[in-house]
Design a protein around this nucleic acid. Structure first.
Lengths: 139, 139
DNA sequence: CTAAGTGCAAAATGTTTGCATACTT
DNA sequence: AAGTATGCAAACATTTTGCACTTAG
C-alpha cells in the first residue's frame, strides 16, 4: 500500500513534490493552480481540491481556515513533524494577519492536560490560536 | 453614544434580544433568519449579516469558523464573560463535530504564558481547539 | 479490464454589495 | 434634513459535483 490505496497519478506526484519543496509555507488551492499553470503544467482545480483533500485526510498536509469567505490554506507537514520534538502551534494575528509558528513546552503541557483531564485529544496541526501579535498588541 | 454611534433600529434590537436569550449557543446567520421568519418577523439576510458583523466588531458577539464551506457561527457574549472568572475555550471534535466549552486554569495559564513569553495576546473567544472528543478518541 | 483520477463546466454555498426606499436622530 | 439602516436581488468567491474521458493497477 504505497499511496494509501490510491492510484499514483502524475498530478498527485507533482503536487506532493511541490508541497514538499515549501515546508512551513501556507498556500491556497488557487495558489497551487496558478503555480502549475505558470509551470506550463496546469492541473484542473477540481483535481487540486480533491488531491489536497486526500492529502489532508492522510495527514500529510494540514488545512487552515483563517476567515470566513477567504480561501483555506494548506501546508505540507513533514512526517517527523517539522517542529522537532515539540508540538507546533500556529498563532494568527487578528489585526495584521501575521502567522506565527510556536513550539514550546507550555503548549505541550496543554495538550497533555486536555487529554488527561478532558479526554480531548488536541490536534495542534489543525488548531489556530487567534489573538494579537506583539507588534499589534502594543497599540 | 448609546449604540456605538449607530442607529438603534428595530432589527438590531430584536436581534440582540434574541442573541442575549441564548447565551453560549452557536447559531449561523441563516439560523437567525429562519428564527425571525418563523416568528413572523422576518429580517433580511443582508441585514442579519451586517448587524452580526457590527456586533462582532463591537465585541458583543463572537464569530467562529469551524470549517471551510460551512457557515460561520455566532454567539452572544455576556459583558462580564459568560464563563465566570475563567477564560472559556472551545474545542471542536474533528470527527463528530461536537463542540465543547472548556474553562480551566491550564488554559488560563497558557494565555498568560503566551502573553509573557511570546508577546501574543490570545483571544480565547475567537480560538477553536481542534481534536478528538473523548467519545471519538476511543476508537 | 476494472477501479480510480482528471478536467471541464455547471452547481452549490455562504457572504457581500448596489441601490432605492425607509427609518433614526 | 442628514445620516444610517433595510431589504431585495444580483454579484462574488470558494468549493463541490456531474459526467465523459483518461490513466493506473
Amino acid at each position: 500500500m504505497d499511496n494509501h490505496g490510491k492510484y499514483r497519478t502524475k498530478q498527485r506526484d507533482i503536487l506532493m513534490k511541490y508541497l514538499e519543496s515549501i515546508p512551513g509555507i501556507h498556500i491556497t488551492a488557487n495558489d497551487v493552480c496558478d503555480y502549475f499553470k505558470d509551470q506550463g503544467n496546469p492541473i484542473g482545480q477540481a483535481t487540486v481540491y480533491r488531491q489536497l483533500e486526500s492529502l489532508v485526510d492522510e495527514g500529510l498536509v494540514n488545512k487552515y481556515i483563517f476567515d470566513a469567505g477567504s480561501p483555506a490554506c494548506f501546508e505540507y507537514m513533514q512526517p517527523e513533524s517539522h517542529c522537532e520534538a515539540k508540538t507546533c502551534f500556529h498563532c494568527k494575528c487578528e489585526k495584521c494577519g501575521k502567522l506565527i509558528h510556536l513550539k514550546c513546552d507550555e503548549l505541550e503541557e496543554l495538550k497533555g492536560h486536555l487529554m488527561e483531564h478532558h479526554g480531548f485529544v488536541l490536534d495542534p496541526m489543525r488548531t489556530v490560536l487567534y489573538g494579537l501579535c506583539s507588534d499589534c498588541a502594543g497599540n
